[in-house]
Design a protein around this nucleic acid. Structure first.
Lengths: 196, 196
DNA sequence: GGGCGCCGACCGAACGCTTGCTTGGTACAC
DNA sequence: GTGTACCAAGCAAGCGTTCGGTCGGCGCCC
């Protein structure tokens, strides 16, 4: 019953509590007092562990992007053809997004807020790498005849990336398992993309 | 150069100015002072035209939902088969969403805020009608063999509705015309849905 | 092994600022 | 001289953040 009393692991616990709130309400819509309430302390006491609310967001966002970029790089490196790479990306992304629900909600709802600040410049950098990966794969697949010749890589990328990020925000609605969603997604995806 | 001085049409102008800001930033993230600045007046003067910030949001949201529901009803009533109805819905929706960018951003970013208030109960009602329309069409299409037999109507609806609402939030990025987007969308859609 | 000093974790109370909204007044129109 | 459209000023509430102080527990010294 007694909770762990690890020294600076309590900080991690606070980040997770904050993340739960961010995932439900977004970053700006969540107040430090709500976070403190969830932890059972006063809002001012949060600043013993973090120097600002933004630092909490920073920790969540950067961890997420490292994770997702690692997945993308592995998918590209360890796949032979574009179609296999895309399937790998979709499957790894779905798992990653599930572990970082808070980060995704923050990117969707508070992108304007974060992307403007120099501190979060790495957001734009990471998004550019993601975009470039998709476009490379789609164009490579088009050139080798795996995908339709009239495919607009940039338009398709925007659709796919956002589509991939949609189901995560459906909360834990329990209606479908992650596997169900990703299978339905892949089905909707490839049967519309491949040439034959 | 002199602007129109119509009596209570100035109110409509204010709603549009507010809508532009809501479309960019969302409802909660937009302040009444920003709206007033855009109109060239002081924030307090807004309350000569509206009794609250929420009233402005109400006007925008209810107008949008009336418009979109009318489109759905017409599409269903004037189409013979489910596939034609869906195509009509997609095309009419795209046009409607383009006219109501602000409402869509508000629903996406501030859904939690609005859906909790009794005043905006009509939001849930309208969403339910939209959902039922989609599910009826998808299941009817599945029964008549137009769509795959293993189609999960509810899951497909959630995907499609959100996908349909995505491109509107891509701001006026000018990269693609509305027609380009809707064609790409329909292509991605039917080639993944139809049985053959 | 009993007292000492320190330190992390937290409280209580406030700070400065922004939020949506109110109030009292004024200038101009018809 | 009544009404519309606005200004100037300000309110209470809420925001993120700061700061002095408290308290229990650990190491250390004699």
């Amino acid at each position: 019953m007694t909770t762990s009393k690890t020294p600076s692991e309590r900080r991690t616990h606070l980040v997770r509590l904050a993340g739960d709130l961010f995932a439900e309400q977004g970053f700006r819509a969540t107040t430090v007092r709500q976070i403190a309430d969830a932890a059972g302390i006063l809002s001012g006491s949060l600043y013993h562990h973090f120097d600002s609310k933004e630092s909490i967001g920073d920790e969540i966002l950067s961890a997420f992007l490292e994770d997702v970029l690692a997945g993308y790089r592995a998918a590209v490196a360890e796949s032979d053809d574009p179609r296999a790479a895309i399937e790998r990306i979709v499957r790894s992304s779905t798992a990653t997004l599930d572990r970082h629900r808070a980060a995704l909600t923050m990117l969707q709802r508070d992108w304007n807020y974060f992307s403007g600040q120099p501190r979060f410049a790495y957001l734009r950098t990471a998004m550019k790498e993601i975009e470039q990966t998709w476009i490379d794969l789609l164009e490579r697949g088009r050139e080798t005849g795996v995908f339709r010749a009239d495919l607009d890589a940039r338009l398709t990328y925007r659709l796919l990336r956002d589509i991939l990020w949609l189901p995560t925000s459906w909360a834990s609605s329990k209606s479908w398992t992650t596997d169900q969603i990703v299978d339905g997604l892949l089905r909707l995806l490839f049967d519309g993309i491949k040439s034959a």
